[in-house]
């Protein structure tokens, strides 16, 4: 059924092809038309599977999935340092499933996420019967939620931030290379790490099979204390994240779901 739905969208909805084109032309440069169409179908089909899983997760709970977390001991060792832990992830796989599995780490988890009116998709846990596996911090809140983020880290908790999209559009980005061209990535996770001494773990969740997900610790980033306002001071850390994300999409090309032109270079709004 999902196969035909994805096929319909790819064949009869040009906007679907357009929105996936930006990423696919960079991930698979020079593909001829039919191969490109097949790529578009594959990424749309994968997205469809994720949407179904997300609905199952919301209705029936995480018990419906087998979720493996490689690097759990590594994350627990980082937490034991007592400075909190910043998890930087991306719009890959099904992050809702990933978040539901991180509770096993112990400390409370907070996710930096923009809350929108009627956006059931993003905070659908709140509409379920059970408790949400994570708290949320709104980047549109007072001072971009930074004080809340600091507090959570000071309490030794886990803070999860998307490293591949800017939240709130405050221009806190640096330009780094990703799949051959510059994109602007947020540097706030690394600034927080610099201010608090919290370690950064780059994690990527991906669908590893029917009803199963894996969560991979791709990289640990240590950010030293950096004073001053220059965003460029944080460029090396955002670049490390971009390299890790490139490695992820090399391995899982159809599980990267940024359906917009992230290569459209934009000057930061200052």
């Amino acid at each position: 059924m999902l196969f035909f739905v994805a096929l319909y969208y790819v064949l009869f909805r040009p906007s679907i092809r357009e929105r996936s084109r930006h990423y696919l032309t960079r991930r698979f440069p020079g593909r001829p038309g039919l191969a490109r169409l097949l790529d578009t179908f594959r990424i749309s089909f994968e997205m469809g599977k994720i949407l179904v899983d997300r609905a199952v997760l919301g209705i029936l709970g995480p018990g419906e999935f087998k979720i493996s977390l490689s690097g759990r001991k590594q994350l627990q060792a980082l937490l034991a340092e007592g400075r909190g832990l910043i998890l930087v992830t991306a719009h890959v796989g099904c992050w809702q499933v990933a978040m539901s599995s991180l509770g096993a780490l112990g400390p409370p988890i907070s996710l930096l996420i923009h809350r929108e009116e009627g956006d059931v998709d993003r905070h659908f846990f709140e509409h379920g019967a059970g408790p949400a596996p994570y708290a949320t911090i709104d980047p549109a809140g007072f001072l971009g939620g930074t004080l809340e983020m600091l507090q959570r880290l000071k309490r030794g908790e886990v803070l999860c931030i998307m490293g591949d999209r800017v939240m709130g559009g405050d221009g806190s980005t640096v330009a780094v290379d990703f799949l051959g061209s510059a994109v602007r990535l947020p540097f706030s996770p690394y600034k927080l790490a610099s201010a608090t001494g919290a370690p950064v773990a780059v994690i990527f969740p991906y669908k590893s099979g029917p009803g199963s997900y894996a969560l991979q610790v791709a990289k640990i980033i240590r950010v030293p204390g950096i004073s001053g306002k220059s965003p460029e001071s944080f460029h090396p850390f955002a670049a490390q994240f971009a390299v890790a994300l490139e490695a992820f999409v090399a391995e899982h090309p159809y599980q990267f779901f940024n359906f917009f032109n992230m290569w459209e270079y934009m000057e930061p709004k200052r």
Partner: peptide, 28 residues
Amino acid sequence: LDSLDAVELVVLIQKHFGLEIKDMDEGR
């Protein structure tokens, strides 16, 4: 100053005055 400067300011207040801004209401 921007929101990320707030992070630094919290750290600086702790460093220079030994004070921790404990909650959002205090910070606000």
